[in-house]
Every structure is written in C-alpha cells, then in structure tokens.
C-alpha cells in the first residue's frame, strides 16, 4: 500500500466521521413530531349545542333581548398554572395586545405567563383559553415554558381561576408551526369545544434577529 493511497483512505475515514457527527447532530436536534394535530383541529370545528331560547309566542326561533347597554361580563381569569410533568408552577397575568406590534403581549418576566384577556376565560362553555409564555430570553435565561415541547398526549395540568377553583386539563395535542404559517385564528377562536391552548416559541433560532422560527402549541381539554 502506497503512502498516497494511505492518505486517501485517511481522508475517506475523516470524511465518514465528519458526516456521521453532522448526521447525529442533525437527528438529535430535530424537533419531536407533532402529536394530536387532527384532534386539535376537530376541537375547533365542533361547537356544543346552544341552549334554545324561547319567547312567549310568535316565532320561537327569534330571540328577543332587552336593548340595555352592555355590561362587563363575569369572566373567570386564570391566575395560576401548574404543569407537573415539566415542573411548571407559574403566575398567570391577564394580557392583551402590544399596541406597537399588534402581537400578543407576553409578560416580560419570563417566569410568568400571560392569559389572553380578550378571549374566553375559564367560565366559558366554548372557545380557546389562551396562555402564552416565554421559552427563554436573552437576559433572563430559561422561561416558564422552556420545556413545553416535552409535553405529550395524556399529560395533565391544572389551572386555578380567580375564583380559587382548580380546573384539571389533559393534553391532547402538541404541534409546531412556522410563525408565518400558524393558524392563529383557530387557536384564538371563541367558538368550538372548550379547550386550553398553551403557546411558546421553538424551532431553529436566528441569532441575528434573536427570534425563533416556530411556535410550539399545546392543546388541552378539561379532564
């Protein structure tokens, strides 16, 4: 065997090693598969039958309401979220929209999470109660939802309302979407089956813009 040949073989070995390492890294960092996507979609399209309204006589299908000025509804905001499988115990703040960006106003403190106060509260018989939290931040480190993507179907969590009542939920889906393609209308819907939607960031991180490419969305139903 010539020296030249030996050098070539060494190059091949180094090449194979490089490919293997890169491959292992690629596989290792691939996000977990989505689970329960169909079930999450079905929850959005089913609406519990409304209780029929009746009038004294005339056409019973025509509801009649006193045209009083609308008063504030009796919402039950979530105040505390516990997700034992991933060690989450976080305060929930009512949040709205960032005026400048038109985006969800996720609480700046990464150990707290935010409930979308314009959507349904825990009292609602329909729609999606949305709670979003940071996966991490550049200056505060890991956030409350750092391990959200580890949740799996069947995991349980508990949301406590402002009324002090604890409400158990069971995870039915975990999905990852590019932020440019996430069907937000479905997750911020006020109709469909009652459900809890937890949202954070995930996927590849762009160090230049300091943004994640994707959103991780976990859907849970009352247990």
């Amino acid at each position: 065997m010539t020296v030249r040949n030996r050098g070539a073989l060494a190059a091949m070995a180094a090449g194979a090693a490089a490919l293997t390492v890169a491959g292992v890294v690629a596989c290792g960092s691939r996000p977990a598969e989505d689970v329960g996507a169909d079930e999450a979609a079905a929850l959005a399209s089913t609406t519990p039958a409304p209780t029929p309204t009746t009038t004294a006589s005339g056409d019973p299908s025509v509801p009649v309401n006193a045209g009083t000025l609308p008063a504030a509804g009796a919402t039950v905001p979530p105040v505390r979220l516990r997700i034992p499988p991933i060690g989450v115990a976080a305060t929930v703040n009512p949040v709205g929209i960032n005026q400048r960006t038109d985006e969800f106003e996720v609480p700046p403190s990464v150990d707290q999470v935010g409930w979308y106060r314009y959507g349904p509260g825990l009292e609602a018989g329909t729609g999606s109660v949305v709670i979003a939290g940071h996966v991490d931040s550049a200056d505060q480190g890991k956030g409350a939802f750092f391990r959200l993507r580890e949740l799996d179907r069947g995991d349980t969590l508990t949301v406590t309302g402002s009324d002090g009542r604890e409400r158990p939920y069971r995870v039915v889906a975990r999905e990852e979407y590019a932020k440019t393609g996430i069907p937000l209308d479905r997750y911020f819907a006020r109709d469909g089956s009652p459900r809890l939607t937890l949202i954070t960031c995930g996927g590849p991180f762009d160090a230049k813009t300091r943004h994640y490419r994707d959103n991780i969305v976990v859907t849970a139903v009352p247990a």
Binding site: E103, D136, G141, K142, F188, I199, T200, G202
Partner: peptide, 20 residues
C-alpha cells in the same frame, strides 16, 4: 368580529433552538 393577534413572540434567548 374579533381577529387573532399578529403573532406570539415568546423567546429571545436561543437556548431552546432546535435548528441545525
């Protein structure tokens, strides 16, 4: 008549990045 928020920005650290 509601619209969904424009997005849910919830991470700037990059510790959870899964990209290659």
């Amino acid at each position: 008549l509601h619209s969904a928020p424009g997005g849910v920005p919830s991470g700037t650290g990059g510790q959870a990045g899964t990209g290659v």
